[in-house]
């Protein structure tokens, strides 16, 4: 009897332990599933609130340049244009510098120097956006206004991009600050992609008599190509959604101008400026519709970037 009772209690304990195990799995499952739910929630909220404006203006919403809350007229084009233009300018500056720096840190620099510099790049990535904006207002804007833009105008002024009045704030300044903010991303992810290239690839090239640069450029870079493109996409997604620093230097003018010196506007900036004080449901809905566009843009670009980065890191492993 005693032994049977003991074995029963042992089974009971085993059973409760198993149930505990199952409960633990379920609890973590719920929270992991919560992440899916949050993402679905984001889509639902954006969809729900943007429908009013999208229904009223239809496709015209994306082609109209007229943004006038007072007369309930909302056209998204100046913001879409400003967002794409500033991000394009940012990549134009950040890609060569960022990939160059990544090559230096991963391949060419002495290891000790490289690890210190990499740490500093990571710190740079941690600086909050609003602080970039604060500094830009008081340093970059006057510098662009008084030095860079006049110089560009006097040398390349025959091009339409470099004509017109100089304000200091505008597309170009926003592009520069975005470039500064995207470097750290491009650098650190490109660097990881380069480091994931197997050592044997470098050695094979060197053993054929290639110089360090030849081995890097001919062999390592093609190996890491996808990861580097992924890092650029990630930088692009970041630039598209970047809000504070851009809001502080773009000039906040909802119109499309050829000149890069002209003040403009971006999607994120107009949401930041107008959302809290939106004048009515239609205005709110138009702002949410803009954010929906921004969401879709960054999702597509991020999704592609993640796939590319996953592909390279798997190959390296």
């Amino acid at each position: 009897m005693a032994s049977s009772a003991k074995s029963t209690s042992f089974t009971a304990v085993r059973k409760s332990v198993q149930m505990g195990d199952e409960a633990a799995r379920l609890v973590t499952l719920v929270f992991a599933g919560g992440i899916l739910l949050i993402t679905l929630l984001v889509v639902a909220v954006l969809w729900d609130h943007s429908s009013l404006a999208l229904y009223k203006f239809g496709f015209h919403f994306f082609t109209s340049q007229n943004w006038d809350p007072n007369s309930d007229e909302f056209g998204a084009l100046p913001f879409v244009y400003g967002t794409l233009m500033t991000s394009f300018l940012a990549l134009l500056i950040a890609v060569p510098l960022g990939v160059g720096a990544a090559i230096f840190l991963a391949e060419l620099a002495p290891p000790k120097i490289s690890s210190i510099l990499t740490f500093l790049v990571e710190l740079l990535a941690a600086v909050p956006s609003v602080i970039y904006g604060l500094l830009a207002i008081f340093t970059l804007v006057p510098f662009m206004r008084d030095t860079v833009e006049p110089a560009l105008q006097s040398t390349l002024g025959f091009l339409p991009f470099f004509q017109g009045q100089i304000f200091g704030v505008g597309y170009l300044t926003a592009g520069v600050i975005l470039a500064i903010m995207t470097f750290p991303f491009i650098i650190s992810i490109s660097r990881e992609a380069l480091l994931a290239v197997p050592r044997e690839q470098r050695e094979a090239a060197l053993a054929l008599g290639a110089t360090q640069w030849e081995s890097t450029f001919d062999i390592v870079l093609p190996n890491a190509r996808l990861g580097i493109i992924g890092s650029i996409f990630l930088g692009l997604a970041r630039a598209l959604g970047e809000t504070m620093a851009v809001t502080m230097v773009i000039g906040n003018d909802p119109s499309i101008k050829a000149s890069l010196f002209a003040p403009g506007y971006t999607i994120a900036a107009v949401i930041a400026n107008e959302f809290a004080e939106a004048s009515g449901n239609l205005h709110l809905s138009a702002l949410v519709a803009l954010s929906f566009v921004l969401f879709l843009l960054t999702m597509v670009i991020n999704g592609a970037a993640r796939l590319m980065i996953m592909a390279t890191s798997r190959k390296g492993a």
Binding site: I35, L36, I38, T39, L41, V42, V45, L46, H49, L234, A237, R238, L240, G241, E242, T243, A268, I271, A272, F275, V288, S291, L294, F295, T298, M299, N302, G303, R306
Partner: peptide, 16 residues
Amino acid sequence: TADLLNGIPSIVLGIV
């Protein structure tokens, strides 16, 4: 999805 959520501009999450 977590990676994508990480990439959503923070201002959009503010709207949510």
